[in-house]
């Protein structure tokens, strides 16, 4: 048993057991070029053992490229990466033994039953007969797969297939699990289920690197988050601190199209208000980051009245990861590609 598993077994709380442990994943100045396209631009981060680390960013930001390098499927152009202490380029076999890889595409063999898929996977990790059997029992209980285990996977629903993919990534008890867009294409209730399973895995002490372009997925699951955009890491921190950094609460004003020059005066006036920390102007809207108290909304409305700025809609929201994303990348995640 590795020392880490021992700490889990002894019920040592995560905050203590992660202290002084070598990180499960270390990425140092990793870059990847495809001809003239720079997919990864010197990204660096580290994932402590036993943590769910979220890589959050739009499609094409470089998340899958990162994971494919970490899973030894792709060679980086420059930089280095370590998984479970092994260099992905110098020691790929040791890395492969330590990881479970669940790519975003559906990965089970459609002609095989669930059980046959898991058997194949177990044999590829050189497990013996009883170990595979026991692990299939555990995983099918954990992921609620028992009833479907002996059906051919061609007949599985999308959610079932994803569960089987996750199970087959876990069959050999990897130290690190790479989950690339685990809830892509799943319906809402299946998605919630999958999240619940991921939290269960976290409680078992496995390190998870989660790639996602869903804000809520990162918010619900990740302990720490790296926001990545255009192949660069924009910011890395714990969820709480990221949320604290956006300057508390946000008021969003939707303006009429025909606001005109009075808008500039309005923006300047807003910036003068003591409680406002930042004003982000967009074509038809203003995002006002502020410290909330009861006087805030009336003051904003008064300023709007003074400058004759017609407001179509006002939204007040507590900070969300989306706002963090906006602050660090200058655009919202959902806008990408729409």
């Amino acid at each position: 048993m590795c020392p880490y598993a021992l700490l889990v077994k002894l019920n040592i709380p995560p905050s203590v057991r992660h202290f002084s442990m070598q990180p499960a994943v270390v990425v140092e100045k990793l870059a990847k070029n495809y001809k003239d396209f720079l997919a990864l631009d010197n990204i660096s981060f580290a994932v402590p053992q036993g943590e769910i680390f979220g890589l959050l960013g739009p499609n094409g930001a470089g998340k899958s490229t990162t994971v494919r390098i970490l899973a030894t499927l792709l060679a980086p152009t420059s930089g280095s990466a370590f998984v479970a202490g092994y260099n992905v380029q110098n020691n790929p076999f040791a890395v492969r033994r330590s990881i479970g890889y669940v790519p975003q595409e559906q990965m089970c063999d459609n002609y095989l039953t669930g059980r046959e898929n898991l058997w194949l996977q177990g044999n590829l990790y050189h497990m013996d007969y009883t170990a595979i059997q026991q692990r299939i029992r555990e995983l099918s209980a954990l992921l609620e797969l028992e009833d479907a285990l002996d059906k051919i996977t061609k007949q599985y629903s999308g959610g079932m297939k994803k569960k089987l993919d996750i199970a087959s990534g876990l069959i050999h008890r990897p130290q690190v699990l790479f989950l690339d867009e685990p809830s892509l294409g799943l319906d809402v209730s299946t998605r919630l289920k999958v999240w619940e399973y991921i939290r269960r895995l976290y409680q078992e002490g496995i390190t998870i690197l989660l790639c996602t372009n869903y804000m809520d997925e990162a918010e619900k699951l990740a302990v720490r988050i790296a926001i990545i955009d255009h192949g660069k890491v924009a910011v890395i921190d714990t969820l709480e601190r990221l949320l604290a950094q956006v300057g508390g609460d946000v008021v969003t004003l939707e303006l009429e199209n025909s606001v005109g020059p009075s808008r500039n005066g309005f923006e300047d006036e807003l910036k003068k208000l003591a409680f406002v920390t930042k004003v982000l102007a967009r074509e038809n809207s203003l995002n006002i980051f502020l410290q909330y108290d009861e006087t805030v909304l009336p003051q904003i409305m008064r300023a709007a009245g003074n400058f004759y700025v017609p407001i179509r809609k006002l939204t007040f929201s507590r900070p969300r990861l989306d706002d963090v994303f906006l602050k660090y990348t200058g655009h919202r995640l959902q806008e990408e590609g729409t």
Binding site: T72, F93, P103, L124, S168
Partner: peptide
Amino acid sequence: ELGFLNKLLAAPI
């Protein structure tokens, strides 16, 4: 084409 090969290649075989 389906990407299953990647799963095989990510295994220590």
